[in-house]
C-alpha cells in the first residue's frame, strides 16, 4: 500500500525534528530513510506509524487519510532497533500476540505462527524465550511478529543497528529477498549508507529534519544534489575553495568534491594534470588507497583497483601528476565536512 506524506512538521519543544516533509512511498517498494543521528529519520518513521503525532501536515496510507488515525488502526508492522520482544512470552507466543489481540481463531493462529517460524527459519526455537536467542534470531522473531498480522506497511527502525557486522550483512540480504517475495511496502531507517544502498529501491536522505534528496542508490551516488549528500553517501575528497590547482576554473566556486575513484594518477606531466607527492599507500585487499599530497599541502585520497595500481607501481615519496576525472561544486557551502575522506572501500 502506498504512503503519502504532505508538509509534515514536528517539534520537540523548541527543537524542530521534522521540517516540511513531503514524501511518496509507492505501493510495494522498499525505501530507506538515511541520515546522521538527529536528522529526523526515526521521528518520521514514528510519525508514519502513529507512535508520534505530527504538529501539522497530512499522512495518507493507501489513499486513506491517516493523520489522526490511531496506531492500532493503521495496520502497520513495526520493528524496533532493540527488538522489543515480550520477554515473558515464548517465541511462539510473541508471534501470536497480534493475532490473539485480533481474536483470530486458535487453529488459524497456530498455523500462521508455524508458517512464520518457517519463514524466519526458527522452526525449532518456538518454545524458547527471547533471552535464549541471539541478536539476529531475536530480530527475525520481531519481524515475524510484525508480519503475522499481515500489515499493509512494514516500518523498521534501525533494524540491524544492534547487531554485529556479519549478522547485519546476512540479515539485510535476507530482508531484501523477503521483500522481493512478498512486496510489503516497507520503510526502514538507517544511518549506514552502505546498508541503504544494498537494501533499498529508493533512498531518502535526511539532514536536520529536512529531506535532502530522494532517489535510487545509483542516482544519489552519481548525482548528489547537495554537498551534504555527496559527503554522506560514499567516500569523497573535499578540497577548499581557494585551491587553484585544478586549472579548469573552479577557483571561484564552493568547495571542490572529488570521489577517490575519480582521480587519475599519471607518472608523467600531461596537460591539465597537477603535481603531487605520494604520501602513503594502504592496501585494502582488492582495492588500494593512495594518499597524495598536493603542492598546497592539501591531502587527496585516491582509490585504485589492484591491476591499475600494480601497473602504476606507486611508492611513497614518489612525485606524480594528478588529474580528476569528475569533480563537483555545490552552491551551498558545507560548514564542516560531514564525513572524513573515508578509508574503507565501498564494499
Amino acid at each position: 500500500m502506498s504512503i503519502l506524506i504532505e508538509n509534515v512538521e514536528k517539534h520537540f519543544g523548541t527543537y524542530q525534528a521534522l521540517d516540511n516533509i513531503n514524501l511518496e512511498v509507492k505501493d510495494g517498494s522498499l525505501i530507506a530513510l538515511l541520515g546522521p543521528s538527529g536528522s529526523g529519520k526515526s521521528t518520521l518513521l514514528r510519525v508514519i506509524a502513529g507512535l508520534e503525532s505530527a504538529d501539522s501536515g497530512r499522512i495518507y496510507i493507501d489513499g486513506e487519510h491517516a493523520t489522526n488515525l490511531d496506531v492500532r488502526r493503521r495496520n502497520i508492522g513495526f520493528v524496533f532497533q532493540h527488538y522489543a520482544l515480550f520477554k515473558h512470552l515464548t517465541i511462539r507466543q510473541n508471534i501470536a500476540f497480534g493475532l490473539e489481540i485480533r481474536k483470530s481463531p486458535k487453529n488459524e493462529t497456530k498455523a500462521r505462527v508455524e508458517e512464520l517460524l518457517d519463514l524466519v527459519q526458527l522452526q525449532g526455537l518456538g518454545d524458547r524465550y527471547p533471552s535464549q536467542l541471539s541478536g539476529g534470531q531475536r530480530q527475525r522473531v520481531a519481524l515475524a511478529r510484525a508480519l503475522a498480522v499481515k500489515p499493509q506497511v512494514l516500518l523498521l527502525d534501525e533494524p540491524f543497528g544492534a547487531l554485529d557486522a556479519k549478522v547485519r550483512k546476512e540479515l539485510r540480504s535476507w530482508l531484501r529477498r523477503l521483500h522481493d517475495e512478498f512486496h510489503v511496502t516497507s520503510v526502514f531507517v538507517t544511518h549506514d549508507q552502505e546498508e541503504a544502498m544494498e537494501v533499498a529501491d529508493d533512498i531518502v536522505i535526511m539532514n536536520q529534519g529536512r529531506i535532502e534528496q530522494i532517489g535510487s542508490p545509483a542516482a544519489v551516488y552519481d548525482n548528489p544534489s547537495s554537498s551534504f549528500v555527496m559527503s554522506f553517501i560514499g567516500p569523497v575528497n573535499v578540497l577548499s575553495r581557494n585551491t587553484k590547482l585544478f586549472k579548469d576554473g573552479h577557483a571561484n566556486g564552493g568547495d571542490l568534491f572529488i570521489r577517490p575513484h575519480d582521480i587519475e594518477v599519471l607518472t608523467n606531466e600531461n596537460g591539465t594534470a597537477i603535481p603531487a607527492t605520494v604520501d602513503r599507500v594502504i592496501h585494502l585487499g582488492w582495492e588500494v588507497q593512495v594518499e597524495l599530497l598536493l603542492e598546497d599541502r592539501q591531502l587527496l585520497t585516491a582509490h585504485f583497483g589492484r591491476e591499475k595500481f600494480d601497473a602504476l607501481n606507486l611508492q611513497p615519496g614518489q612525485s606524480v601528476f594528478v588529474k580528476p576525472k569528475f569533480t563537483k561544486v555545490f552552491g551551498d557551502s558545507l560548514a564542516e565536512p560531514v564525513a572524513e575522506p573515508v578509508a574503507e572501500p565501498v564494499a
Partner: peptide, 19 residues
Amino acid sequence: AEEEAAKTLGAKDWQIFWR
C-alpha cells in the same frame, strides 16, 4: 518499546497493561 510494540500489534491500553 514493548508497550509500543504491543500498540502497533493492535493491543488496547488495558490489554497492554495486563499482557
